[in-house]
């Protein structure tokens, strides 16, 4: 992946596919590290699946037996001498408190650090593709933070879908303005 934000889009889609009503995406940066956390309340995974998700030959796709999403993110983090962790509680074992949490830590100053890239597009693409799921996005840097909570937008929009063209473009501008203010 050319940008870390593409991994974010890819991994967050797993959460939606796992039936998550809410997927939380946190990017926290300081001068030397970037921490990415993606947390959902989807169906989760049992230990057996969890142990094998970082293996490219584990996948939920049906068109071929290879899945690269998680292995690519893990590799991107480890290449910067950072770390990767995934924990999960399956719905069958934890009916009240299930979901998956992915944490990847990157050393920003490492030569193999993939730039974050266009996070705004990843968030709008995510919402456009799954207008019935909710997302909480927060990006905190030393200069301030950018936040979006689709539950707040949904409360205003009522029965107008989040994937309406005007709404997607509004979200894009809304995030753009917040990033401008951080500069």
């Amino acid at each position: 992946m050319k940008e870390l934000s593409l991994n974010i889009l890819d991994i967050s889609k797993n959460s939606v596919k796992a039936g998550a009503e809410l997927t939380e995406i946190y990017i926290t940066e300081d001068a030397s590290t970037l921490t990415l956390e993606i947390k959902d309340n989807g169906c989760g995974m049992k230990k057996e699946m969890l142990d094998s998700v970082t293996d490219p030959f584990t996948t939920t796709r049906t068109t071929r037996p290879v899945g690269m999403g998680i292995p690519l993110l893990k590799l991107a983090a480890e290449m910067t001498e950072g770390s990767f962790r995934i924990t999960s509680r399956s719905e069958s074992e934890y009916p009240e408190n299930h979901g998956t949490e992915v944490t990847a830590v990157f050393n920003k100053n490492h030569i193999d650090f993939t730039p974050l890239g266009d996070v705004i597009s990843s968030i709008t693409t995510l919402i456009q593709g799954s207008p019935n799921a909710d997302f909480l996005f927060n990006h905190t840097t030393e200069k301030g933070e950018v936040t979006l909570d689709t539950r707040e937008l949904r409360a205003v929009l009522g029965d107008v879908s989040l994937d309406t063209f005007e709404v997607i473009l509004w979200i894009q501008d809304y995030l753009k303005e917040q990033y401008e203010a951080l500069k």
Binding site: L6, L9, K13, L72, S121, T124, T125, L169
Partner: peptide, 28 residues
């Protein structure tokens, strides 16, 4: 197509372009 393969190959800006152009051309 927006699976890992599509995203890695550049599907995200393609999707954004469709959204922007269709809104711009009033084809919604």
């Amino acid at each position: 197509g927006m699976a890992t393969c599509g995203i890695a190959a550049g599907a995200r800006p393609v999707l954004s372009t469709f959204v922007e152009e269709i809104a711009k051309e009033n084809l919604a």
